[in-house]
Simulated assay, not measured.
Amino acid sequence: MTTQTTIAPPVMFSEVRVLMPGFMLCAVIAVAATFVSEHYGGPQFLYALLLGIAFHFLSDSDKCIPGIEVSAKKLVRFGVALLGARIVASDVSDLGLIGVGALVGAVLLTISFGLLLARVLGLPPLLGLLSGGGTGICGISATLAISSTLPATRETERYTLLTAIGVAIFSTVAMVLYPLVVKATGLSVSEAGLFLGGSIHDVAQVVGAGLIISPEVGDAATLAKMFRVAMLMPVVVVLALVFHGERRKANGGVGTKTPILPLFLVAFAALATLNSLGLLSHELVEASSTLSRWCLVISIAALGVKTSLEKLAELGWKPIVLLSGEALFVAAYMLAVVFAARLIAAQ
Rank of each mutant, 00 (worst) to 15 (best):
A8E: 14
S281C: 03
V206D: 01
F23A: 09
M24K: 02
S148K: 06
A174Y: 06
P43L: 15
L265Y: 11
G136P: 00
R17S: 11
G197Q: 13
A81L: 07
T273C: 14
G139I: 02
V229F: 01
F78D: 01
T2N: 13
N275V: 15
A345G: 10
A106M: 06
F264T: 02
I140S: 05
R77F: 07
L261M: 15
K311C: 05
G166R: 11
L315G: 02
L97V: 14
P151T: 06
V207R: 03
T3Y: 01
I87K: 04
I53H: 00
T256A: 09
V36M: 14
P10Y: 08
L211A: 12
G105C: 10
T172I: 07
I298C: 07
A250D: 04
L261F: 15
F13R: 15
S199P: 06
W317Y: 14
V217Y: 05
S199K: 08
A106W: 04
V203N: 07
A33T: 03
G245K: 15
V242N: 01
L82F: 09
L291Q: 04
R293V: 11
E286F: 12
K183H: 11
G128M: 03
A168F: 04
A54I: 13
R247N: 09
G42Q: 10
W317A: 14
C295Q: 11
T143A: 15
F227R: 04
L291W: 07
V173Q: 09
L127N: 02
A345P: 01
F57L: 11
L322Q: 06
Q4P: 00
N251Q: 15
H56L: 06
F329T: 04
V70G: 02
L196K: 08
V18P: 06
A250P: 02
E69V: 15
C295F: 10
P234V: 09
V254K: 07
F264P: 00
S324R: 04
G255V: 13
L46P: 04
I68T: 01
S90N: 05
L261Q: 08
L187S: 01
L196D: 00
V88F: 12
I165C: 06
T5V: 14
E310N: 12
T222S: 09
G79M: 12
G132I: 00
S71I: 12
V337G: 00
T273L: 15
G114V: 04
A27Y: 05
E246L: 14
T34L: 05
A8R: 14
S131M: 12
K63C: 15
